[in-house]
Design a protein around this nucleic acid. Structure first.
Lengths: 332, 332
DNA sequence: TTGTAAGCGTTATCAG
DNA sequence: CTGATAACGCTTACAA
């Protein structure tokens, strides 16, 4: 079923059908209607590949995420996909699993499909180099995880979106200290730039809030299981533990419970992200809310304006919000 | 950067480059190497659109899910995407949100992109009609949700994948009854075929296990918020509530907790799906484990064999497994 | 083993 | 307002 079949059926030329289907203003209303009717009856759907070939545009965005299974990533995908669909773009998706090899493969995929734009979430690749590879298509980075980004380093000046982890962690630490917690620990997630960034942010915030104190670290390089981590924490009995993210916090709370440690009675626990289950856990989890879905939408927005204005918008840091719940409640 | 540029740079014809890059056996090893080197240096990536146009195959699968945000869907996507990548397929993704209109749009998208195969998760559209539309590309349905599928009705004979909800619910009900629970309720999720199926399965299982008893229903048509639902349950005080899925169960437990109802002390609560957070909740959630990731992989497998053998494999019902945790523990 | 040429299904240009 | 016609970038007979 090609445009030619439709043309024959209507009794016009292929160009007329093409124009009619694109609502080109030159076409007569009558023809447009006839063409539309016949095309619908025949179930004709224009071949995107053929169209892309000539228009040199695919109306496709490539989206790489580390792993859809993570609730945060899922929300970013949702926001991205919806915004893309609204703008008439198709999304091709690939999981990168925070692995350089797989990320490169994902990018090659987007290149092969000539995606009009590319969004990379949690990419561990060097941003400038990626941009050079994907050029001329615009690339936006969402919460980049390239090693060089750990700690104080910063994203490229344009096209990067990230959450304001520093403020989030700072608010969290202040909240903990105000609650009378002094010995504060940080539970490491899998090694990553953002893990280090959050750890550093916590250390600084703590030094500021409680002069002379030092952040205790759990996990990190020699990272093993959550239960091992919880064992460490249970033995050490800090006043509070700040976890890399909500998933880890929830697992830690569960593991502590099996060890007979009460949260927040014995130890306060906080997470990061505000995933849907943070509010449902028992105790409900204190955390920092990231605007994940908005990040996805924003990425599409940046891509579109880069395409329209031929210039990538400046990088942006989204504000986060401290969400205080039960897991850090003051000791009775 | 086209195949012609590469050809010129190497000093051969475009066809030679094409063959070399595809590892066609006819090409000489020397040429193949030269072409590969130059192509890499130039950063040449074949244009998929052009390729599809002539090969009449896109190496692309369309995947529709109701909403990636749901953990179960996320796992299906992961399995699907991985299996697809391993087989050299690209995934184009669209959210259907259990809305016929959006599902049709998603399918139109797959059609436009000439996806070699299509997987629809939780589709609310009539299966046979969808098949007819997408033909000749194969379509697999994962946990179809078309209204006609509610209760006892069954999927098409080929290309459908679903979890054995009936056995799962049955095991759940028996477990509850063995635990001494007699007055058993079912908490409805959003209206859907699987919601009805599970409700019916629960009703039958209960009649079988406790002759003369009747399943109490919470929510359903006049469905409101979880807290309203929890209010209903708290007032009615059944022995146990079986929830449509884990998300609902977790929310219900949280809401009951704020009402001062103890789980499982006062009321036992069970879910369905075994999402990752089911094991972490407090109390840990009794549920039925679905093999979500495997469903995704299986869908790709079915699509591939349909493509290779020109015939869609028979429909399959995946076994599920009862996972007993704290939320349905025997009353002390 | 390599080159030539046709054609995949569209759209854009240029006449009419 | 509509119709020819030439690309778009690639693969694949067919020839050499």
């Amino acid at each position: 079923m090609t445009i030619e079949d439709v043309a024959r059926a209507v009794g016009v030329s292929p160009s007329t059908v093409s124009r009619a289907l694109q609502d080109a203003p030159v076409i007569s209303a009558a023809t447009r209607r006839r063409v539309a009717r016949v095309a619908a009856r025949l179930g004709y759907v224009p071949n995107q590949a053929a169209r892309s070939l000539v228009t040199r545009t695919t109306r496709t965005f490539g989206l790489m995420i580390p792993d859809v299974t993570d609730p945060v990533h899922g929300q970013v995908v949702t926001g991205f996909e919806q915004a893309a669909a609204e703008a008439g773009y198709t999304v091709i998706m690939a999981n990168g699993f925070a692995d350089p090899q797989r990320e490169r493969r994902a990018i090659a995929l987007f290149l092969a499909h000539r995606a009009d734009g590319v969004a990379l979430m949690g990419s561990v690749l060097p941003q400038a180099r990626v941009r050079a590879t994907v050029r001329p298509a615009p690339v936006v980075f969402i919460n980049g995880e390239h090693v060089a980004l750990a700690g104080y380093a910063s994203d490229l000046a344009t096209g990067c979106i990230r959450s304001d982890d520093l403020s989030g962690i700072d608010a969290l630490v202040r909240h903990l200290v105000e609650g009378g917690r002094r010995r504060i620990g940080y539970a490491h997630g899998r090694p990553s730039a953002s893990d280090l960034t959050r750890r550093d942010a916590a250390a600084r915030a703590l030094r500021r809030a409680v002069p002379g104190s030092r952040l205790i670290e759990y996990g990190g390089e020699g990272w093993r299981s959550e239960s091992a981590l919880a064992g460490l924490i249970a033995r050490d009995r800090p006043d509070a533990v700040l976890c890399y993210d909500d998933k880890l916090a929830l697992r830690t709370i569960a593991a502590l419970r099996t060890l007979g440690v009460r949260v927040p009675g014995d130890i306060a626990v906080a997470g990061f992200d505000d995933i849907p289950f943070a509010a449902l856990s028992n105790p409900a989890l204190t955390t920092v809310a990231q605007r994940s879905e908005e990040m996805g939408r924003l990425a599409v927005g940046m891509l579109r304006s880069a395409l329209e204005r031929a210039q990538m918008p400046r990088s942006i840091t989204l504000p986060v919000q401290l969400v205080v719940r039960e897991s850090t409640a003051r000791r009775r």
